[in-house]
Amino acid sequence: MPDWIQIVLRALSLVIILFFMTKWLGTKQLSQMNIFEYISGVVLGGIVAIHASTLDSPYYYAPLAMFIWFIVPYMVELISLKSKSFRNFTQGKSKVVIQNGKIMEDNLKKEHYSTDDLLENLREKNIFKVADVEFAVLEPTGKLSVLPKKENQPLTAKDLDIKLAPEREPQTVIMDGKVLLEPLANLSLNTNWLETELDKLNVSIENVFLGQVDSHGQLTVDLYDDKIAVPSPSQKPLLQATMKKTQADLELFALATENEDSKQMYEKNSKKLQEALDIVSPYLK
């Protein structure tokens, strides 16, 4: 057999073996790997590279070596899934580098992490002042996870005591001008409903590039023809405005009337309407 055919056969078979081995080793990203996993990956590649391009060693050496370098990381991964202490040993533990706003110099030293490294990693998280950090952990992968002090954290609706309507994931119901039936059924809607909604927007389904329905049953579309303006959803803002206007009207009537009974009735209902408005306004946004 000529050499070149041997090379072709070796390379092809080794590529296939390598493909399956990396598949079985898991789907971790390169950045999430620890050093051991990283090195075993490189060694696997190296074995394939050597045996695919030279004919010095017998063919079966390659699968043998690859098998060893595959089975050891595989077993390590398997055992570390079961045992926490083994996991700590193989994958390393995360080290606290800043606690209660104070830098833990000893831990930094142990991890061979210089002050410049720390500052650099903090800057990557948009923190330029160590004093702004409450807690920081150096992960086994070498990444720094940072918890800023409460006053430096982004403001959330919870902090402001604002009630927000819960919202689930929107469903994509139209893609490339075609109706997707399964997501539509997930929302317990049907094609008739979709056609009605599209009629309301005055567009035909062939012109819709992408259409999504949120959990409140609101359809939003993107058209192929970007020159056509699609009316933005108006039902809810309109309802809110109407309720506000009616509430103001009732107050006005209460002020205008001289009949005591009517005045009280208007005032009471104005208050009631305000109450109703407060209940639904989170859902009308």
Partner: peptide
């Protein structure tokens, strides 16, 4: 609405509006 909370809120508001 598919959201139970939203449906309840709308029903509550509807009851109040009905009284008005």
């Amino acid at each position: 609405s598919n959201e139970r909370e939203a449906t309840e809120a709308f029903h509550k508001a509807q009851a109040i509006v009905r009284e008005i």
